[in-house]
């Protein structure tokens, strides 16, 4: 069995990278190697994981500097003998080893507007056409791994923006609310106003790293920005409103 050379962050903020050699087999992913390390050499190595199949979004880490899911990073993608650096997510406060405090995301989640759907039809069913929800179903693929939040430079390099910037994961949720065909929540109209959407400079790192392949920038963030342009910056729409009065926004 070949050996993997791992450089793993150990400890809290006062910690350091520690080198390990771990045997691995063909077909393993980084999380398997980390687990073997845990079972054989470092029993107290802290790492989050649950499903091991890219569906729960727990094992996010930075491997060779790139934010990824450990369970979806296969050992074959490395050059044999290459040193593999496994670091915790750097945007969030470190707890220990590979585990960070992601509670900021849960606080932001509480600020998200709720859906309030229109009443069902007389027979008790709500009717929505597939073409009205397929765009939304992409947003709902999100596994909340927070890799997009981690890579976003708006907060990664400028943590002070966390107070006013919801981050890509939540722009996806806001787009979900904004585009829902049956939602009647008055708050819907304002989803593109707050949450720091204009801090995004669409450099697309969130889209680049999304393990679910959600087109965060093109399908969520830019459409939200465009919805705001409708209200404030579109010269034709402004003219129409001036001439015909009122806001005929749908």
């Amino acid at each position: 069995m070949p050996n993997a050379h791992l450089k793993v962050w150990r400890g809290d903020t006062g910690g350091a990278y520690v080198d390990y050699d771990v045997e691995y087999e063909e077909g393993m992913v980084v999380l398997d190697v980390v687990h073997r390390l845990q079972a054989t050499q470092a029993g107290d190595l802290a790492v989050r994981w649950n499903c091991k199949a890219g569906k729960c979004g727990s094992c996010s880490a930075e491997i060779n500097g790139k934010p990824v899911l450990q369970c979806m990073t296969r050992m074959e993608t490395f050059i044999p003998g290459e040193t593999i650096t496994v670091a915790p997510l750097k945007t969030f406060p470190l707890i220990r080893d590979l585990v960070t405090d992601v509670s900021w995301n849960y606080r932001v989640a509480e600020t998200m507007p709720e859906l309030k759907l229109s009443a069902p039809d007389a027979d008790g069913h709500r009717r929505m056409a597939q073409i009205d929800i397929d765009r939304e179903q992409e947003f709902r693929k999100c596994i909340e791994c927070y890799i997009c939040q981690d890579v976003c430079h708006v907060i990664r390099d400028h943590p002070e923006n966390m107070e006013k910037f919801a981050g890509p994961r939540f722009f996806v949720q806001l787009a979900n609310v904004s585009m829902h065909p049956l939602d009647q929540n008055p708050a819907k109209a304002t989803v593109s106003h707050g949450f720091g959407l204009d801090y995004c400079n669409i450099t697309k790192c969130c889209t680049d790293v999304c393990p679910e392949g959600i087109h965060i920038t093109d399908n969520a963030i830019i459409p939200l920005k465009e919805r705001r342009v409708d209200e404030y910056y579109d010269p034709v729409k402004a003219l129409v409103r001036k001439v015909f009065g009122g806001g005929d926004k749908k």
Partner: peptide
Amino acid sequence: MAQATEVQ
């Protein structure tokens, strides 16, 4: 909040 591994 202390950042992990002295963020860049």
